[in-house]
Design a protein around this nucleic acid. Sequence first.
DNA 1: TAGATTGTTAATCGATTAACAATC
DNA 2: TAGATTGTTAATCGATTAACAATC
Lengths: 215, 215
Amino acid sequence: MEDRKISKAVITRLPRYFRYLSDLNDKGIEKISSKQLSILMNATASQIRQDLNTFGDFGLQGYGYNVRYLKNEIAKVMGIDEINNMVLVGAGNLGQALLRYSGFNKKQFIFNAIFDAVPTTIKLPMNYKEGTQKFEVQPIDELNMYLETHDIDIIVLTVPKVAAQEIVNKITKKGIGIWNFASTDLEVNKGVVVENVHLSESLMRLSYNLKKGRN
Amino acid sequence: MEDRKISKAVITRLPRYFRYLSDLNDKGIEKISSKQLSILMNATASQIRQDLNTFGDFGLQGYGYNVRYLKNEIAKVMGIDEINNMVLVGAGNLGQALLRYSGFNKKQFIFNAIFDAVPTTIKLPMNYKEGTQKFEVQPIDELNMYLETHDIDIIVLTVPKVAAQEIVNKITKKGIGIWNFASTDLEVNKGVVVENVHLSESLMRLSYNLKKGRN
DNA sequence: TAGATTGTTAATCGATTAACAATC
DNA sequence: TAGATTGTTAATCGATTAACAATC
């Protein structure tokens, strides 16, 4: 894999390529050209070739791309060929829905522990760490200690807006990612990566586009 | 409000402006300059002025922007000054979490009905239509008829990927928005607007950025 | 009025598309 | 080999930043 400068726009599109290639692979399709893929994905063939070439020579002139190979290479680039260990912080409605969510690959993204301000017990989530028998929700004060003593990659943060920053402030671990569902922009230490899912912003964009279309 | 060409990038940022201005307004702050806001939001003052000017002259030279006025104008632009009537389609974990989600304005975005392949009864959701006493989940076959006979703006679609497109195909209503949580790209008729929340793509981006930072 | 800050034009930067030589 | 399709350079397009005149 070469080390050219990877644009933000390409990274945004990578998971979508992965999704389409996974679907094609599941259908048993072995090769695809940038032209064919461009029709499928509603993009330009030029963009697809440009995007894929940021990472390396995945294609073969005169042939196209091998679907399975390309899919796997993109998985490697994104780091989803390895297991991502997660903890849930905030066991409310949304948090519990994510625990049981089957949309993302259950084998690649695994919940290892659950924290909440109110410790309790919740029902077995579908993609909880395999073989675990205890499903206790731990008090949030123990989060930082847990992170320091366990190999966790991602914190799924589904606490109320007002609680989010305070929780993040206490984290001392480096090289960790926060999947942030709280509708606030978190300030984090160096070495901590944040990916926001600002649901209300998404809903507002829908509202805007809807109104615009009606004019 | 003038009618210049509004760039996609600006629309993406609008809800974030709204959030910051709402916070400032709640704190009782009356005026803000593009410079001050740029520090707060981690953007350039130039971009903020450029963005806001797409919609009209909201500022006052030598003074800055009136926080409350600007907030309200942005709300108007986004169409969240009016009520958005919604229905939930797919009453699983994620759907129910959204029903009870308090992150978006409960008075502006109201659930009016719930549909699912398996009709049942669910517990009172927090931001369900006010005063309603029945909380029956209706069979999904009745969705299209419901849409044709009620004043609905937005369908919140939280069904499995495989079911999503089929449901959308049956919708005959125009001028409706779909807030799509199914991890697939929907094909819709003209006049139907889709806003995607592809959670697994977001998670993959986090994975990528995390791995990149570790190298 | 003088100082501050906008609105807007011009310059730069980055991302997308077009074009075609390289090559399987 | 001939046809197909990539990889890559060059051209275009759009978005961001800089700069400053307008004006409160």
